[in-house]
Amino acid sequence: MSMTSEIASEPSVSPPPQAESEARAKMTSRGVEVHYGAKRALHGIDVDILQHEVLALIGPSGCGKSTFLRCLNRMNDTIEGCKVTGEMTLDGGNIYDKALDVVQLRARVGMVFQKPNPFPKSIYDNIAYGPRIHGLAGGKEELDGIVQSSLERAGLWEEVKDRLSEPGTGLSGGQQQRLCIARAVAVSPEVILMDEPCSALDPIATAHIEELIDELRVNYTIVIVTHNMQQAARVSQKTAFFHLGDLVEHKETQEIFTNPQDERTQGYITGRYG
């Protein structure tokens, strides 16, 4: 990992030395391998995800970035025949430990999916669902507060405040995706995983979400999978390039885009293949 201070993006503090980075690591992955039946999808991934930073995962389709993302909150558990080996931690605790409660893990590591998938319920109920099942709100007023602040954080409050009882599925695509982000934020997670959150959105909605990601970074740690190189460059501090199940390069975003070490990385980000 490069530690040169010149290339740090303005809002973040200058990159700390290695030891400090370990200490700031929100999640770590050591030698993570994923098998789908007999097929090996990830070959030993080592990544540190630092607190209050955005990590972008890029790479051609089928390279394993979404698989890696879904390992981080064990969504792969739901896939038949999927086996994860290696060590993955959240705040130093192994998330694949038998004793770990996966429900609790997913409350701490929230997720936003590629296609907006609001529940077919009202906007209010979409946001309130998480706090309700996790018992985050004591009463109706507290719940109202959570719903409002979540929607405000997702930049959606002004647009929907007068129609909270309307179905969430009636919103536009960009609004739906922000609703999903608000829904993820509402359970106060520590990490938010985003799986190509803008792939189904127009440029204006995309810009909205990118601004939002930058704001959310202050409170949360974010991992985002994207096919859009410019997006990765705009929103992330660190970038990891995956290729055919390997983690090829993982370093400061600016550096990976200006000075890629690996030929494959260079080829991909310059658009020669991928």
């Binding site: 929230g110 998938n117 099942i133 829904r183």
Partner: peptide
């Protein structure tokens, strides 16, 4: 749709 299941599971349900 499986996306509904994923959404709920992703929320920690």
């Amino acid at each position: 749709p499986p996306s509904i299941r994923e959404a709920a599971l992703g929320m920690g349900a």
